[in-house]
């Protein structure tokens, strides 16, 4: 849509505070993400990663400083549909059954303005996004009949279907098995190569480490590290003790079910 040079800024926080009920959770943060960058947001539970992401999306109030996203202050983005988002929440909540196709199609809607209907090209994008998360054969099934990890993958597909300029994912791999994590890493490598800016909140970079070059570590609402992923300190402890980012740590990734493996998926579906 818009031609951009890779040097342009996709996300800029300047002295920004984000929080709830006038209590800043993320306090006085500076961060600049250029177009086309792929960045991991690490940090321990409760450090403020989700709050930071929600602040960028206009879902948590900016209490001070400036937050700019795709060149406009938060909430003032002119053409919608340029952002894809995977919330941390695990499942889709609606009370009425909906199919995988219906949920993922929502990802396309914002691009279409208020009245335009989904066209053939949109349906192709929806199909590709669902295939990318390995659920092509579940397209017409009600999402409630999928496992927790599969529902998570549907939400990833919804964000991918938008073919956004900026993709913000809050723990996209939580509860997702190793094979699907590998597949996701491949997809992210592809969209990243195509110029999409990635901001991925995660506890375990795992297979995504090959895609995410840069990392910021959030510690008690402040950014305590900003640099190459390989040098990022552990997000799960109080102290910064050595690199976490060695993706292939044995024992973290269980082998995908193969002929010799026991019939167990690596990470449990529900939490």
């Amino acid at each position: 849509m818009t031609a951009r040079s890779p040097g342009d800024v996709a996300v800029r926080l300047h002295d920004a505070s984000i929080g709830y009920d006038d209590v800043p959770i993320v306090a006085r943060v500076d961060l600049t993400v250029r177009h086309g960058e792929a960045i991991a947001v690490l940090g321990s539970n409760g450090s403020g990663k989700t709050t930071l992401a929600r602040g960028l999306l206009g879902l948590a109030p900016v209490l001070g400083g400036d937050v700019e996203i795709l060149g406009a202050p938060v909430g003032r983005l002119r053409d919608p549909g340029r952002i894809g988002y995977v919330p941390q929440r695990h499942t889709v909540s609606g009370a009425v059954p909906a199919t995988v196709r219906e949920v993922v199609s929502v990802g396309r809607l914002a691009r279409l303005g208020l009245f335009r209907r989904l066209r053939a090209a949109d349906r192709v994008a929806v199909g590709e996004a669902v295939a990318a998360v390995g659920l092509a054969d579940r397209m017409e099934e009600p999402i409630a009949s999928l496992s927790g990890g599969q529902q998570r993958r549907v939400l990833v597909a919804r964000a991918l279907a938008a073919q956004p300029e900026l993709l913000i994912m809050d723990e996209p791999t939580a509860g997702v098995d190793a094979a699907s994590q590998d597949a996701l890493a491949e997809v992210l490598a592809r969209v990243s190569a195509a110029g999409t800016t990635l901001l991925v909140v995660t506890h375990e970079t795992g297979p995504l480490a090959s895609v995410l070059a840069r990392a910021v570590v959030v510690d008690q609402g402040r950014i305590s590290y900003d640099g190459p992923l390989a040098g990022a300190a552990s997000g799960s402890g109080e102290h910064h003790c050595g690199p976490v980012a060695d993706a292939g740590r044995p024992g973290y990734r269980l082998d995908q079910p193969t002929v010799t493996a026991r019939p167990v998926r690596s990470l449990g579906g529900g939490r």
Partner: peptide, 10 residues
């Protein structure tokens, strides 16, 4: 279905 997502994507 998901008001928060709808708001996030504009």
């Amino acid at each position: 279905d998901d008001e928060e997502y709808a708001r996030a994507v504009g």
